[in-house]
Structures are given as C-alpha cells and as structure tokens.
Amino acid sequence: MVGISLGEQHFIKGGIAQDLRTDGRKRLTYRPIYVETGVIAHANGSARVKIGGTDVIASVKAEIGRPSSLQPDKGKVAVFIDCSPTAEPTFGGRGGEELSSELALALQRCLLGGKSGAGAGINLSSLLIKEGKVCWDLYIDGLVISSDGNLLDALGAAIKAALTNTAIPKVNVSAEMADDEQPEIDISDEEYLQFDTSSVPVIVTLTKVGTHYIVDATAEEESQMSSAVSISVNRVGHICGLTKRGGSGLDPSVILDMISVAKHVTETLMNKLDSDISAAEAREEES
C-alpha cells in the first residue's frame, strides 16, 4: 500500500461523509462485478470474480474421504486461502500468512454454519456417501490475484460461484460388506450431481470510516477505516455469520444498524450475483 498524504486522507473521508466517494460511487454502491466460471479445467468447480481492481479465483476439489468419528453422518469441507505476493508486496512472508488464515477463518465462519449444521451454506449431510465409512471431502481454495480492498466479499462471491459450477461424480457403493471393512466404491464418470447452492450466503462487509459506513471499500478507503464488520446473509434473510475486524470498539446500536443495512444490501446483491453466475454458466456451456 502506497502511503496516502494527509490531503488525500481528508478527501477520502470528506467524500464518504458527503455520500460521494472518490470513484463517484455512493456509500452503499458496489463496483462493477464480473463473474466467470469454469476457469480451472481440472477442478470440480471454479470461478473467478472481479470487483473493481480486486481479482480472486476460487476452486472446489472433491476427494473421497472418511467422515470423522465425531460426525459420522457428515462430509467435510476445508477452506484455504492464498494471498499471492504478486497481488501486494506485503503479502510475501508472514503478512500474507496472517491475512490468509484470517480470511479463511472468516469464510469458514460464514459458510459452514453452526455445529449442528444450521445456517450452513453447504449441506454437509449431502456430502455423505456411506455413514461412518465414505464421504466427500471438499477442498475450497481461494487465490487472491490482485487486491484492491474488499477481499472477503469477493472471495465469498467466488466460492458461491465455484460451488454452483461444481459437479460431483455420482458414486455407487457396493451394498454387501462386513462391518469393519471399507466398502468398495464405484465412481461414475458419466453421471454428475450438481450442488444446491441456493442456501449459500453472500458476504457483505461494511467498513466504518468516520461516522459512516460503506460497502465494497477500496484499499485506499480500507486504510482509513476504524473497524469493519463482515456479515453473511442467506436468501431468507437470516444472519449466517459475522466477523468484526479492526480494534476500535463500536456501540451496540451501531452494530444492530449495520446488520439491518447489510440485510438490505444483500437482497440486491444476491439477485445480481445469481443472475451473473447463471449468465457465466450459460457462457461457459456455449463455448
């Protein structure tokens, strides 16, 4: 991040206070979003999402695994994020690692729901093939190619698109087997199952600059933030996860207000993303 002069700082803050940001947007307007699916051929599903100067890729890889003994009726999902040093020099070394694990943690919190599975974007039970024996392990990898703020929202959108794009082979399990043995499985290479992604939430990050908060902050704007709250909301308007960043405290009423603003913003964002994703899917099929 290049240092910003005092004058520029005032300009950014002043613009936000007057509901006219430096790039001409209003406080609650997103930058143009561009979605492309099927960008990685050998993954089960993948997508690239660009929001302004932020560019991320998400891929979904499914592997056959064993359910954990604690939850024998569920598959497993792991989220990894990699912040490439090409996106930002500070991502090299420790700085990137910390940011990566923070983002991965926030995404897990937003996508995987509670311990009982309520509010989960991905239905873990649908990943089960044979109870206690075989299940799908989903590896969701996010890669930050270029960073201009609002990484979490972009990654959330990319994962949603990648999951929509994901096709998992149908698996047949041989019915007869002893209790202790691992069942034989037959992975079909013709029949594929699609994911139901309607319950995958979208993530909206509200960045607080001065007394106002904005959506989709650029890196410049993020450098002026006092704190940011990322809220993931699903289609029915329930909150699926919330993470706060930035050290400074917030008044409880402000947080509640942010939640209601986020819910309002998501409605339009969700519809826009859905239509973008289906358009991208259609494009991919044509080509």
Partner: peptide, 24 residues
C-alpha cells in the same frame, strides 16, 4: 445451531469483538 461471542468494554459500553456463526 449458532454461537455468538461478544467482547465489550463495560464502562465505555462499546463492543470490541463480535463473532456469530450458524443461523440467526
């Protein structure tokens, strides 16, 4: 079904950390 963890400064009545998971 969901967890909610909040840290706050009681005298200043400010929330410094808030994490929510699950469906709320």
């Amino acid at each position: 079904d969901g967890s909610f963890m909040m840290t706050c400064m009681p005298s200043r009545y400010e929330i410094t950390q808030l994490t929510i998971t699950g469906e709320w």
